[in-house]
Structures are given as C-alpha cells and as structure tokens.
Design a protein around this nucleic acid. Sequence first.
DNA 1: AGCTGATGTATCGGCACGATATAGTCATCC
DNA 2: GGATGACTATATCGTGCCGATACATCAGCT
Lengths: 183, 183
Amino acid sequence: MLEFAILGLLHEASMHGYELRKRLHDLLGTLRAYSYGSLYPTLRRLLRAGLIAEEAPEAEPARSSWGRRGKRVYKLSADGKERFAELLADAGPQTWDDEGFNVHMAFFSRTPAEVRMRILEGRRRRVEERREGLRSSMARAGEQIDRYTRELHRLGLETSEREVRWLNELIAHEQREQRGPTE
Amino acid sequence: MLEFAILGLLHEASMHGYELRKRLHDLLGTLRAYSYGSLYPTLRRLLRAGLIAEEAPEAEPARSSWGRRGKRVYKLSADGKERFAELLADAGPQTWDDEGFNVHMAFFSRTPAEVRMRILEGRRRRVEERREGLRSSMARAGEQIDRYTRELHRLGLETSEREVRWLNELIAHEQREQRGPTE
DNA sequence: AGCTGATGTATCGGCACGATATAGTCATCC
DNA sequence: GGATGACTATATCGTGCCGATACATCAGCT
C-alpha cells in the first residue's frame, strides 16, 4: 500500500523523503502513520526494484570531506510508471479495506472509470457487511450486554450507515457521468 | 494491545485460541484482524512471561500414539491478573488511537472511573485534532483540489464531528454518575 | 554567539498481517 | 458406508508497518 502511495505521489512530482512523508500525511490524514520506519525501507526497496531512481544532486561537488548526506530526491522510473498503472487498474480485495480504499480514492482522477466503479461497489459491500455484523450483534443479547460496548457498537453502526449512503451518492454520480459525460 | 485484549478476555473465562479469536472479532468488529498469525505468537509470549498458564487437559491419557494435539485451554495467572490491572489503569497516548481506544472501552466496566474519564478526554482531544486538520486542509485550496479527495475529507470531517459529539455525551454521562451515582 | 524549531536521512526491535499447512470432528447426502 | 464439505483447532512463515531514537543541517530569532 505504501508502495502504491509513494509511486502515486512521485508520479505528480519528484520529491525527497521528508516531503513525501508530509504529503502522505495530508493525503491519508491520521488514518495511517507512515512513519520513517516504513518510508525509508520502502524507498530502498523501490530503488532496488528499479521502480524509482535518485535524481542527480545538481552538480554540487562534495562540499565537505564526508559530504552533507544531503537531500536524496527520488523520481519515478519508466518501470515505476508501468507498475503504478497496474496498481491503478487493480480492484482486488485490498482496495475495499480502510487504508487501501483511502489511498486508491486519492488517485481516483487517474483511475479508469470502470475500475473506480468496481472499487466503490466493493467498498460498499465491505461496509454493508460491517453494518450487518453490528446490527445482528446489537440484536443478539439486547439487554445483558455491557453499556460501553453497546455505545461503541451504536457509533460504529451509525458510521457504517453514513458511509454506505455516502458511497451510494458517489456511485450514483459515477453512473450519471458514464451515461452522459458532457451533459 | 493484543496482549491487553487477551488478558481481558481470559479474565472473564478460560478459553482456547480459536474461541479467543472469535471473541476478539466481535469485540473489535472488523477494525482489527487479529489473525492466528498474531494470536498464537502472542499466546506463547504470554506463556513464557508467566502471565497465562495452560489448563490441565482433563485426564485424557494419550488417545492415539501421537495424541490429538488437543485443545490447549489457557487461563489467567496471578501475575496476569496483576498485569491486566496495570493496563486497565493506564491512560497513556496509545489509549486514544483507534484500536487502543476500542479495546480499552470494551473493558470500561472494569476500569476505574477517573481512568475512564482521562481516556475519554484524551480520545476527544485526538479526534478534535483530526477534525481540525481536515477543516484546515479543506479551507486551504478550496477549489483546485481533486473532487474525490474533497469527498474523502468531507466524510472524514463529518465522522470526526459525530465522534466528538458522541464523546461529549459519554463524558457528560460519566460526570453525572460521578456526582450522584445513586440518584 | 547560541538557542530553537523545522528540515532531513536512517535504523532498530517488535507487533500484526495475510497466506498457508495440518488435522480432528460432525452432519448430510447419495 | 463413504464421500463431501463445514467447522473447530493449532501453528508457522515472510513481509510490512510501527514508534522510538539518533544524528545532522539550516533558518530565524534574540
């Protein structure tokens, strides 16, 4: 997932790690941390795999003897663009869970319309399952259950219901666009 | 966090791994997976640490030569109860994030009242921060931003606002209880 | 000149994950 | 009676992500 997010951000512009992390943060809110403990190892992995490359450091010739460890700027390689396109076209199970859905949605404007639709519908199914799970768990043992757990379930249920409605609106909008994009 | 959840569940009743996992699931919904890949290693860790113990297998003398690998039933040890009490009394930062808060709230009826209050208030602060982050990010760049990202932020903002209201109600309820428990 | 806070790269141990293997039990259906 | 499949149950492997921490650079302030 981090790989996908990094590829997508570098697709917009070349960046160094620190900036990448900030962009990840306001892309995903506090949903995920994506701290340096995962960012830098992933960056190295992508480098080794040849999906990203290090940009030349602007002809700045070895300032001190040890060099200033200075800003490594990463850019997307041709392979990386291809890989990103593959991931964009994917609508598998990992695209309906919380973090996967958020990341994919952040890149929706570059996602093919029918893939968008499948992701949206998959996500809806997933949230509906959660909603039904909570409903039945609240119906079972209506009284004897712990007050705090009940409150927790109530909030979860309302949140699921709202998300389903939100998804319905998005899906309806997509359908309208597909039928008559210029109308 | 898993450690805390396991200790809490075993505090109610002795159980084997499979059942433990089911109970974890309807405790936490689909928020966390807590698959066997984390459950069994954690169980072993707790065994080694002496916080839980294996219950005697009911005098069933080696049914076949290799034995039926049968049900390992775990129970809380004295140390484990102590450890659970410590964790119950904790209201640190990890109790305000999504998974931590959910687990702690599930054991709220066994949590001291003032710890409950501190957790609730900490959680509220956390959610308010998220809410403010989303608000400012929506205010910044009001137009130019991607339509899908905007929708994502809108849902997140509404969800945060609802959760803050929900927390306010819970906190008010706690205060009422603390002032006049029997009224 | 010295402090502070933001920028920036990097690693460590540990926790949790999904996938997968293995195996016993029980009901159902042909 | 024996095949099939659903459920119960234990266990491990590789991998990804986490928080904490360390270490540097640099701009602005005082």
